[in-house]
Amino acid sequence: MISYAPDAPDRADVRTLLEEHLADMFATSPAESVHALDVGALAGPAISFWTAREDGTLLGCGAIKDLGAGGAEIKSMRTARDARGRGVAGGLLGRLLAEARERGFGRVSLETGSQDYFAAARRLYLRHGFTVCPPFAHYSADPNSVFMTLELSEG
């Protein structure tokens, strides 16, 4: 059974997954369009970091960043290669959204890539009710980015 729980981004297996994530982001997008956080940033006080595990094996990770004013951002969603196609990302996203609701956030937003590589991620977010939106927080318009948001107060 897959379990979802708060975790530390500096654990060895998580660090490896996050390094893979960053490498893929830089291989797919121009450096100025990569907004993935490194391990140090994910350990920050405004971040709630979660992992998905099965029998102790890391399957995926994701985080919620408090943006202030009732808003949060999904960061560093990643599923381990061997765990893809098993619903890990959907389960983890569901858990992150539940956490956001529990913490009283009214809106959750995210940035993902516009390239074909990110098509599955965009479909996942759309299935969970996210809609495309203008840039938010510190972001600015970028042809390599798609911005999405979900109003939690609406469901």
Rank of each mutant, 00 (worst) to 15 (best):
M1Q: 09
I2C: 05
I2T: 15
A5S: 13
A8S: 15
A8N: 12
R11D: 06
A12Q: 12
V14C: 01
R15T: 00
T16E: 11
T16N: 01
L17H: 02
L17F: 01
E19R: 04
E19N: 10
E19K: 02
E20C: 01
E20R: 01
H21E: 02
H21K: 00
L22E: 06
L22N: 06
A23T: 08
A23N: 08
D24G: 00
P30G: 12
A31T: 14
E32C: 06
S33N: 07
S33P: 12
H35Q: 05
H35P: 00
L37D: 08
D38N: 15
D38E: 14
L42F: 10
A43W: 06
G44W: 01
P45C: 10
I47E: 00
I47S: 00
I47W: 02
F49T: 07
F49D: 03
A52T: 10
A52V: 09
R53L: 11
T57L: 12
L58R: 00
G60T: 02
C61I: 05
G62A: 06
A63M: 04
K65D: 11
D66I: 04
G68P: 04
A69G: 10
G71A: 15
A72G: 14
A72I: 05
I74F: 11
I74L: 15
T79S: 01
A80L: 09
R81D: 08
D82K: 12
R84V: 07
R86E: 12
R86T: 10
G87S: 14
A89T: 12
G90S: 08
L92V: 06
L92D: 05
L92T: 05
L93H: 03
G94T: 04
G94N: 02
L96E: 06
L97Y: 10
E99M: 02
R101V: 09
E102L: 11
R103W: 01
G104D: 00
F105D: 07
L110M: 13
E111T: 14
T112G: 08
Q115E: 12
D116Y: 05
D116H: 09
F118T: 05
F118N: 10
A120M: 02
A121P: 10
A121S: 13
R122W: 04
R123A: 15
L124Q: 03
Y125D: 01
H128W: 06
F130A: 14
T131E: 15
T131K: 12
V132Q: 14
P134H: 02
A137S: 13
A137V: 03
H138M: 13
A141H: 08
D142V: 06
P143H: 05
P143Q: 03
N144R: 02
V146D: 03
F147I: 08
T149H: 12
L150D: 02
G155H: 11
